[in-house]
Amino acid sequence: MNGAELEQHRRELEVHCYRLLGSWHEAEDLVQETFLKAWRGRDAFDGRSSVRTWLYKIATNACLDARKSGQRRILPVDLGPPADPSLSLPPRTDVAWLEPVPDRLLDESPEAAFVAKETIELAFVATLQHLPARQRAVLIVRDVLGWPASQTAELLGISVAAANSALQRARATMRERRDDRTRPGPDEQEVARRFAEAYQRADVDGMARLLADHARATMPPLPMWYRGKSAIVQALRQSLPFLGELRTGLTRANRQPAVYSLVRAPGDTEFRPFALSLLTVEAGLIVETTAFHDPDVFDFFARTDDFGGTESSTSA
């Protein structure tokens, strides 16, 4: 075993740990820890399993250990009922927020089949965080990686019966917490483009035409969230026209279309990051927006994506 043999599995292990933890930054740290443990323990590796399987075992258990004392990552909908759009609340810095991941990083995984949309979209990863850590691991290993029960049990150091029981409970919870969703269709990116253009013009009516009546909007690290087109539109009318000059562009995250935005406030001399908004599109309408108003998230995407295709600016 050598460093190159370990390194070829880095990206798929990071994707695996991201599903378990809801944070790419934590995933990167724990994969690095996995490689250190594997290298230090290489003499004890007996070759009964592949190096890849051995690394998954180390990484999975490292993630489980990390979550024993840590907070699970959430979205604003986990904090309480929808907010009155006339109210505004300050950011919550005491909450561990779920983080998005750029598609560009997912595309670098040699195991592309394991980063299909339905296994990495934000709603799926968010729902995973509601499972107890071991159930989460079993569900990912069985239903995403496709490992058999015996191999899953060995990975986690439990019996096959316990692995199967954990899988049944995890699947039941996922069914309860996830709405049935239709496939987004080929117009997904076009809807995102039209939304970005309306957003840049501060055209609230144009944005409203692209929202489903039952749409939901969240804005971490702001703790409030809105349910229904009317509430979202009211919130937009109260804020968007007064931000300043906007620039928007398209990218992708978690296999979903995303819109990034920059704003130049009145009296300011430069554009500054405003939000990165992931869109969920069904039947030609947006059913959910998750707008990350977090400079760290924006900087992370800027480092991994050239944010190409920026629209020309329009005064709001």
Rank of each mutant, 00 (worst) to 15 (best):
G80Q: 05
A44P: 00
S50W: 10
L98M: 09
I58P: 02
L75H: 05
L105W: 10
L98N: 12
V31E: 12
A113M: 08
F35M: 13
S86L: 12
V101P: 05
C17K: 09
P90V: 08
E108Q: 14
P76G: 04
Y56D: 08
K117H: 08
S69W: 01
A59C: 15
V115S: 12
L64P: 00
R52N: 02
D94R: 06
C17Y: 02
K37A: 14
I74Q: 02
V51K: 09
P110N: 08
P91T: 11
G80N: 10
A59S: 15
L21R: 13
A113F: 02
F114E: 13
I74M: 11
G80M: 05
D43V: 10
S50P: 00
R52F: 05
L21H: 03
D29S: 04
E111R: 15
L105R: 12
R42D: 03
P90T: 05
A62S: 15
Q71G: 06
A62D: 07
R52Q: 11
S23A: 12
A27G: 01
P81C: 07
A112I: 09
P91S: 11
T60M: 07
L75D: 02
P102S: 12
R72E: 06
R67F: 06
G80Y: 01
D103P: 01
P85N: 07
V51G: 00
G47S: 13
T53K: 11
D103H: 07
V31P: 03
T93V: 11
A38R: 14
W39P: 00
Y18A: 06
E14W: 05
D43W: 12
N61T: 03
D78M: 04
K37N: 05
Q32C: 02
A66K: 10
A96Y: 11
L64D: 01
R92Y: 06
R72S: 09
Q71S: 15
L89A: 14
P76C: 04
P91N: 06
A27I: 05
P90A: 13
E118G: 02
A112F: 04
P85T: 00
F114Q: 15
A44Y: 05
R48F: 00
L30P: 03
A59I: 06
V115C: 10
L21G: 03
D94T: 00
D46V: 03
